[in-house]
Amino acid sequence: MKKQILAVLLALLLLLPLHTACAVQNQALEGLEILRRGFVGVGDFTAEIVQQKELSLMRQKLVSRGVVRFKKPGLFYMELYPPYASGLLLQDNLLSYVLTDEGVREKVVLPPEESLGRWFAYLERPVTAFPEGVELSAERQGESWTLHIVPRSKGGVRAFHIYFMADGRLQRLIIEERNGDRTTLKFSRVRKNVGLTARDFTLD
């Protein structure tokens, strides 16, 4: 569960492990820095999403619509609308989620390295080197960029693919799992600094 949440955060907030291994300047680093710059000066953020899950447990794709929001210094919210309604709130490293129709509520304290504050701190610095623990590659086609991130660890995620524009606007995120499952998130109506309040981060 945490890995997928973090995968989404990764796309939104450039969530990457923090230790630098070398300082090779290449296209991947350039792409990463473009994404990071697109985030600089952002106090809050909201976007509509369409999520598509291709799961080995299901005969058909699960398609959901919803919304994501975040606000500095440590709030992240994600809501999926019916038919598979759910809500998720991350307050720094305290994660709460609800399955709206089923009335299920859960709370989990995440390890500190997965807290929002840590990622925000990362975004303060320009990207000058490859992050440790992942392999990075990037492609550019005109104004469109694709960043491929392959974790070296043997966790559930095989790769992340992030699609974004040259101005840093996020378009799509694909998460590939080792078991063949695949999640695609498409972002639209992306708005920055709209003055989100605490009410926008409540799980009802």
Partner: peptide, 21 residues
């Protein structure tokens, strides 16, 4: 099973896949 589908569709899905199976 409806609950399982909602959970799989949510961000918790990846973590509970094996448990739901």
């Amino acid at each position: 099973l409806r609950r399982a589908k909602s959970e799989l569709a949510s961000q918790a899905g990846m973590g509970v896949r094996d448990l739901i199976a």
